[in-house]
Design a protein around this nucleic acid. Structure first.
Lengths: 213, 213
DNA sequence: GCCGTTGTTGTACAAATGTATAATAACGGA
DNA sequence: TCCGTTATTATACATTTGTACAACAACGGC
């Protein structure tokens, strides 16, 4: 007799959850939030719809977990770029910029996923919590680099405000470049972001010199 | 006998479309794209679901019209601020900034609506078309102001690239401030944006001096 | 080899959705 | 006052959705 191959395989909850999270990311990328249903995720993960309910409270709970996972992956990519750079704050910041404007960060799929997260921040307290953490970590890292550079270059600047402005610019460039790559290019974005660093190094942004509050 | 009050009122197609568009904007703001169904819009506009189908091809067609309408309203608000300012490019740019960070532009509802548009850019060619026009107009206005300022101040700068960076920063600040007003304040955003103008006036961004291509 | 745990399936069902259709009635013109 | 146009409603129907439930079976322990 042929070995009766199992109709399904059991996974440790942790493993199965991971697989469902990755399926969710794919759904968000391809179908958007509106198309990401329990059934769509289950189909993508090749499991029954009921299993999703078994591991997560509902689709929103699953999306919170996905934000946590995807956010961490992006952070790791950027941190890795920084750590691969020589031990110099300016070079690390420039490596950070370069990594921000190439895959896997510069990626239409990632934007689609991210837009779903943003649209849930308002309604879902879980998403809001993850969002705060992701962005606070993100800005914290850049603020540190900017403060380092300012210190070395003897530039007086409010690193906190500068980091807010810089992350906003990076976010905006990333967003608009993913949305519509025909209006300007990856190279344009890189020039703009690096020019900001040039300006910082040259002692620009004197208007941000005063300490906040 | 009491005057039998009409069970419904007839509107000119143009008027009814407008009402449906405004109901759609409200739905997008309160329920997000996923919750904005033909029925939800119809209920909000106090008409039957069938009427939506009578005036629009479907929910996506309706959303395209809403993008067109809302986009135009925002543009008008910003243009009005510019035109109310004295006849000086720098002052006009600063008025533009001020208008960007107060209602009705700085508004959580508007962000929720806008996020829905962004999430459709990829899949809906109609939304994509409106998006291109809205952003190209938006950037064009700022590029003109920046070029004017640079000319008056004898600053050599690629106004096109500078406008890209500036709009990205405005967008990012606006986005993140609407998403989570607790991390930084409206005043922080204003200081950051105005500092950018200070820097432009003072001859910063020398790295963007070379003409593109 | 048996058995219990529990990850997993399949089915069922109520609710919500988009769309098509025919019936209705409001409003302007004659 | 009547009449025709057509904006509008009401209904119906096929799909899709979330969720609950009972039955199943894979895997580890004994």
């Amino acid at each position: 007799m042929a070995a009766p191959e199992p109709r399904f395989t059991r996974d440790l909850p942790e493993v199965r959850r991971r697989k469902l999270i990755e399926a969710t990311a794919q759904c968000l990328a391809e179908l958007g939030y509106a198309g990401t249903s329990v059934r769509a995720v289950a189909a993508r993960a090749k499991v029954s719809p009921g299993l999703v309910a078994h591991h997560f409270k509902g689709i929103d709970d699953l999306i919170v977990a996905t934000y946590d996972h995807v956010g961490q992956r992006v952070a790791e990519t950027l941190i890795e770029a920084m750590e691969s750079a020589p031990d110099d704050a300016e070079l690390k910041l420039r490596a950070f910029i370069d990594a921000s404007f190439k895959p896997p960060v510069l990626d239409r799929d990632l934007l689609a996923i991210w837009l779903s997260f943003w649209s849930l921040v308002r309604r879902d307290s879980g998403v809001r919590r993850v969002h705060k953490k992701v962005y606070s970590d993100y800005r914290g890292r850049l603020e540190e680099l900017i403060a380092d550079i300012a210190h070395v270059r003897r530039v007086k600047i409010d690193a906190h405000l500068a980091a807010l402005g810089f992350t906003a610019m990076l976010d905006g460039l990333w967003l608009e470049l993913c949305l519509d790559p025909t209006t300007f290019s990856r190279e344009d974005a890189l020039r703009i972001a690096h020019a900001w660093v040039d300006d910082l190094v040259a002692g620009g942004f004197r208007a941000l010199a005063v300490k906040r509050n």
